[in-house]
Design a protein around this nucleic acid. Structure first.
Lengths: 154, 154
DNA sequence: CCAATATATATCGCGTGCGATATTATTGCA
DNA sequence: TGCAATAATATCGCACGCGATATATATTGG
């Protein structure tokens, strides 16, 4: 027995738990965004914009789909976001000569300089999370597993 | 020693872990939305709209701020969402006679009837999550703790 | 070599999600 | 009582996030 109905599917309570986990994820992320919004206000960056900058600070000169893959986002989302960062002078977008379909994204000096200003962000976030390192690591790894399942579903 | 610097703050690696947890949350939720989008397509509901319907199916005739509190959303987000559901004929919004500031939300017959169509949703989601019950419960409860911290941070 | 196919990015439309602000109703206090 | 403070909801503007679709370039098969 355990968690199976006679036909092998999950029980009714199990289904509720899954829905509860999803809502916990949803509502917790609202809180994450709230904390990042406050922390990023001095930089005038949104959380997704900050994620893009993190990618570029780690490795400059990547194409759009590289960023998409790393951040689990669609080009549909990234193209306008990148254009906004370009308009602010933080990065440049230019067609790649070797393959004119690709657009290479590179940091400007202003984009590189912003990294220094972003230094206190992780500390703000760590303090807001306020939970133990062990818990953070476990949670992170469980979420990675969940994410893999969700993106592979169908 | 352990996880403290001489000044008592978190170490550099700890900060990275917090950021990694936040990104895991962010990207996992993208997957959750993806799964719900597909499951909810026959109902023509978004995930937040579905959450509102769940609230109302559980307890009808609530005011806007009740829903806000339950879903961790601002009225700014809910008002337009509720107006869309009202326009679709799933619910009604009317000022409460006892306190004209409040707006009471009640399900229409169509709104109640939609519940039957929503019955297979939790199963779709449970299958997509594809992890053990124990893990789901643990994750859910850890996230609740995290959420409380995040919403209480400053 | 050239047409069919695949790939990379962009455009459009719509629904969140929230900060700043406005509006109306209620409450509290002098 | 009357007026300031508070509360509940709404409006506006902007940035995601993605499905559907378009466009341009590259690749592949005949």
């Amino acid at each position: 027995m355990k968690n199976e109905t006679p036909t092998g599917g999950p029980r009714r309570d199990d289904l509720k738990l899954s829905a509860q986990l999803c809502f916990a994820l949803y509502s917790t992320l609202l809180g994450v965004n709230k904390v990042y919004r406050k922390a990023l206000k001095p930089l005038d960056l949104t959380y997704p914009q900050y994620l893009v900058m993190l990618v570029l600070w780690e490795r400059d000169d990547v194409n759009v789909s590289d960023i998409c893959a790393q951040l689990y986002l669609e080009t549909t989302t990234l193209t306008p976001l990148l254009k906004r960062l370009e308009a602010r002078g933080l990065l440049q977008r230019q067609r790649y000569a070797g393959d004119e379909r690709q657009v290479r994204v590179t940091l400007t000096e202003a984009g590189k300089a912003l990294r220094a200003q972003a230094e206190p962000i992780p500390m703000c976030v760590a303090q807001a999370l306020g939970c133990s390192l062990d818990e953070i690591v476990t949670l992170r790894d469980q979420l990675k597993g969940l994410r893999a399942n969700l993106f592979n579903a169908d």
